[in-house]
Each structure stands twice: as structure tokens, then as C-alpha cells.
Design a protein around this nucleic acid. Structure first.
Lengths: 242, 242
DNA sequence: GCCTTTATAGTCATAGTGACTCTAAAAGAA
DNA sequence: TTCTTTTAGAGTCACTATGACTATAAAGGC
């Protein structure tokens, strides 16, 4: 049971941190937010943003605070972003200095301005996913888990809209799927599927947007009320993992 | 970033525990393993089994160790059980005495003997899910999250076989779905779906088993190699949450 | 004007599924 | 024994969802 026979010195003390895998779609490519470490160990290496949980904070609050600090976004903007707990990493040797348990979060954001690199992050950058090279600690593993989770959640939730601005075209939404899954989707079929899935998207009345100056203007949509898609929008070829 | 500017006293110390939501199907009913607390706070209340992570343990190792201690199962048996990290609970006030972050795990077990209540658990019992009343700490929330997660995973993974012994009938497997989801499934349709989903189950050659002495003997199957079901076996009526 | 690009409207064949009916093989009751 | 009950398992039918298409519309660049 939790904390049987209580004694302040009877439990092994741990440091608890949050790490964030922040994804965005930029120019049709999936990008991850990374920071460059300014101290040992792994000095100069790239790592996921993150930091300690404060004494009166939940892990979720810490994640949102760190995200605001490292991206330079206002607290109000960060409050509206999609942030989701991924899992907790607790290998005793994951940090060479001491026992650190880290609660990892995944954030999905629409295309944002270049991060300011505030907080203790010497440099923060959007890095194309796949070209990030080796990361500090077990952050490669965390990033891989986060990518897999995001890909899976696109199938059965309306999460893809979190990568888009408030109003978006179906082409932009389709590009999110193609970018995260690394596949090409048939345009008419994707359109049919999205529009017939109840609650996925809602049409914006007057709207129409030129898509980068090319092609016919597209109607605008906003995220619908559904958080689960029925039936799901499954990846082609069925490569899952879970 | 994780543990910038290291100083042993610079980080807020946390206690880190694991909590377990252990499910089994007994007599066609979903049961949860609960222990009765022997100390304040919540003395006498029922709670999820769990305990501290030791200094050289990962959270997963701690979960497996605690499960063995509280159920009285051998380490070998516990090693074969399905154990999966659920999520981490970190509300600063979730434990009234001190700051405790808990990594929750979900375990799915076939019908087991009554637990011995070893370890520090005064009493351990299988309690029918839904009749457990109020639990200590935030364990009701953890249990609800675990149930929702298990229900969702039955849809797109072969997880249901973890509730069954090594060899099982399709009727037993169907009962797992019906019990966890709380619905009735059409027998022929369920059978067709399971048998046509590649890798879900494999026929056991000679086998056949009387199902509680009633009805025609059923063929035996074992869990197949697939960990993901394609296409998924969706709940009727599409009530998800995610 | 034409060409390219993207959006959007359809068509058609097929796989998957829900709602069924029907038969087989066991135990227990009369 | 025969009849009833129970569960396994085979099979049918209609409808939905989907993959693979074709075709048209509306923009910019040339």
C-alpha cells in the first residue's frame, strides 16, 4: 500500500522531472522541439526540454510551465495546447548522477514561431524528426515512444486537429496524417472519411483559403466536438505496434 | 532540461511509489485485487496494492515485486503475467502526509487462487468491480482509468487472452470481452471475428473442453503471435473515451 | 489561351459487420 | 429412453465502410 508506516527518512528520495516531446508540422515535415544542453553530462548534446517538478506542482502543471519557458509562448497560449502524459521512465541508471524518475509528456502544437530558448535552455530549436541524431539520456527512447503514440492516436481520435490552427483546410489536415504516418493518402477518400465521421470537423461558414497560392481554394473547417473517431481512421497496411 | 546545474539539495525530494490495478475475470464477473489498509491515513479502508520503489529498482520491477508479495504468487508466475504501465499520478495533495508521486500499473491475470495477503497487506481480496465502494487516496480514479484503458485495449490488441489460462475456449474469451465491456456479444459473429483476425488465436490440436458441464464441448485455442488486431474488434455502440 | 496544382464530386467492387437461422453435441429431467 | 436446455459452431443476407479509381472545378503561372 502507499506509504505504509510513515517516517520521513524511511523512503528512498528521488528527483522527479518532466520531459516533453513537442511535435509540430512545418513545411510538410514533422519537427521536434529540442534544446542544447549547457552543462554536464551530455554537455552540448541535444535533449528534450523538461525540468524539475516544483514542490506544489503536479506533473502536468510542470510540463505546461516548462513548455512555456522553453518555447517563449505566453501562459495563455500554452494553456490551449494539447498536452498529454506519455509514460514514466524510471530506469535506475537513466541519469548518471543520481536517481531521477521522469514523467514524459507529448505536446502537439500548430506551426509556431522559432522558440526563444528561454529558461535554462541555452538553445532551443525545431529539428526535423528523424534527423535529430543522438539525444541525451534516454530521450531517444522517449521520442520514439512519443512518435508511436501520436501515430496511434491519430487513428482513433481527432487529435490531428491539434497540429492545425483554429481554422484549417482538409488538405492541411491530410498533410498532418501523411507527415506523422509517413504515407500518402488518397485525397477524395480522406475527404469522404473525415466528413462522414461525426464530430470530427465542422465547416466554417464563409471560409475559403488559397493553399499556398496553388490550386482551387479550399473550404475551411474547425475541430469538431468528438474526441474519439467512429469508426477509426486506420493507417494503410496496418503497421501498428502498441 | 533534466537535472540542470546539479546539487544534491537543489531538487525537491519526492517519494515515488507504484500502485497496481489488478484485474481478473471470475465467474463471469470482473474482479479487482484490493488490500485493506492497516495504518493511518485511511486505516481500515480498501486500497490498491502497491509500495515504494527501491533505490536500485525500476518502476516496472517494483510493480512486479509488489504483485508477487501481495498475491503470494511465485516470482516465476508473476514474471509471465501481463503488466503494463498506466500513468503517473502526481497531484501534490494526493497523499495527506507528504509529497508522493505514484506510477500506476495495470495487471491482467487469469483466475488465480485467493491471495495470501503477504507483505504489508493486512488483508488482500478479490472484490467484484463496481462493488468496491470508496477507496483510499486517489485510488478510485486510478481504478477507473485502468478499467477504461483495459476496455480500450481489448479493442485493438489481443490483450483479452491475458485474462485466460494458456489454453481457452472461444466462449471463455468472449466472456472476457463481455465482462470488461459490460455488454453481450453475438456468439457466431464473435467467433468469426476472432478466427479471421490473423494471429489473434491459434487452434490447439487435440483439444476440447466441456464448458462447465453444459453444452457442446468447445475447441481449445491459445494466444496467437499478434499483439495488434487488424482490423480492431470494436465495442458495440461506439462508446469510447480515450 | 494552356498547363499545373489542388479541391471536390462521383463510381464501383469488395471487405467487414450486425442480425439472423440452423445444426451439433453435451448434461439433466421426466 | 426421450425431451429440454445449453453452448459450440456453420452459414446467410443486407448494409456500411473503404480502396482504387475517374472526372470536374477553380485557382496561379506561363
Amino acid at each position: 500500500m502507499t506509504v505504509e508506516g510513515y517516517d520521513p527518512r524511511a523512503f528512498p528520495p528521488f528527483a522527479v522531472t518532466v520531459d516533453l516531446a513537442v511535435f509540430t508540422v512545418r513545411d510538410g515535415e514533422l519537427h521536434v522541439l529540442l534544446i542544447e544542453r549547457g552543462a554536464e553530462p551530455y554537455k552540448g548534446a541535444w535533449a528534450l526540454p523538461g525540468g524539475f517538478i516544483l514542490p506544489r506542482e503536479s506533473a502536468g502543471q510542470a510540463a505546461r510551465r516548462e513548455l512555456a519557458e522553453e518555447t517563449g509562448l505566453s501562459a495563455g497560449t500554452v494553456a490551449g495546447l494539447h498536452l498529454e502524459q506519455l509514460r514514466t521512465y524510471s530506469d535506475p541508471d537513466r541519469d548518471p548522477r543520481m536517481r531521477v524518475v521522469s514523467v514524459a509528456y507529448t505536446a502537439l502544437v500548430p506551426d509556431l514561431p522559432e522558440p526563444r530558448g528561454g529558461g535554462d535552455a541555452a538553445h532551443a530549436r525545431w529539428v526535423p524528426h528523424g534527423s535529430q541524431g543522438r539525444l541525451a539520456f534516454d530521450h531517444e527512447r522517449i521520442l520514439a515512444d512519443a512518435h508511436e503514440r501520436v501515430g496511434a492516436k491519430l487513428e482513433y481520435t481527432g487529435l490531428a486537429t491539434a497540429f492545425c490552427p483554429a481554422e484549417f483546410t482538409l488538405g492541411e489536415l491530410r498533410q498532418v496524417y501523411e507527415t506523422v504516418w509517413g504515407v500518402e493518402l488518397d485525397r477524395p477518400n480522406f475527404r469522404r472519411k473525415v466528413l462522414t465521421t461525426p464530430g470530427f470537423v465542422e465547416a466554417v461558414e464563409g471560409g475559403a483559403r488559397l493553399t499556398g497560392g496553388r490550386g482551387k481554394p479550399a473550404a475551411l473547417y474547425r475541430a469538431g466536438p468528438a474526441n474519439a473517431l467512429h469508426p477509426p481512421l486506420l493507417r494503410p497496411e496496418g503497421r501498428h505496434s502498441t
